[in-house]
Design a protein around this nucleic acid. Structure first.
Lengths: 110, 110
DNA sequence: CCAGGTGTTCGCCAACCAGCGAACACTTGC
DNA sequence: GCAAGTGTTCGCTGGTTGGCGAACACCTGG
């Protein structure tokens, strides 16, 4: 499987990141990764079609929020670009993740 | 002038806030208010039509990011809902504002 | 009362976005 | 080689968004 392209850490744009996070499905992806990195795309328990899911992963990847590497078999290994995000936007990811649990507990528990 | 309605602090939604902030003109408004509260809408140095500006203020207001009160004369006094945002989403606003200066310095200096 | 200044609202338009299914690509395993 | 499994891409659709100008509402000052 072709490796996908990712923005460099220093090219990560705040508007792209905020836009990527301003959507419940994508937020759930991020939140799930924050709890357990390295999952393939299909393991997020989101009730959307494959194509829609793939599009959401693409938005997150192109915003620089997640990294998608070719994993074993045909899976994509998704990881949060935690350190890079923290270096560029200190505290942002953590405060957003904390905010989600405050504002959208259903998502947090589901 | 009619007073405008604002969401209660506890009803502020993280997705609405992130969406509101994921736009350079609106971000500039927030950033300007962070530096100096209480300005009328026309004093933000944004090169957009009045109607577009008004729409952006509406998005920010309905998201709970800013408060718009009827000021002296016909002006709206815009203020950041800093304390309320901080209470609900601790650290979020500050990290976003800091992130903007990192990611969009042109906006910061303009 | 009328003019000037500030914002809001209303159409309108082009662009974007989230959703889907179908088809394709790629790897593993039989 | 072929089926199964996982993601991606493409085309399409409906809804939302951001932009504008024009018209209106409202207050202040002549």
């Amino acid at each position: 499987m072709k490796p996908l392209s990712h923005p460099r850490a220093e090219d990560i744009n705040i508007y792209a990141v905020l836009h990527a996070l301003a959507e419940p499905a994508r937020m759930k992806i991020v939140q799930t990764l924050a709890a357990a990195d390295g999952r393939p795309c299909g393991t997020f328990g989101i009730n959307l079609s494959k194509s829609t899911l793939s599009a959401h992963f693409k938005v997150l990847r192109e915003a620089g929020v997640i990294r998608q590497e070719t994993g074993p078999g045909n899976a994509r290994l998704n990881t949060l670009r935690r350190a890079e995000l923290n270096a560029r936007f200190p505290g942002l990811l953590d405060s957003v993740l904390q905010a989600v649990e405050e504002s959208d507990p259903a998502l947090a528990s589901g």
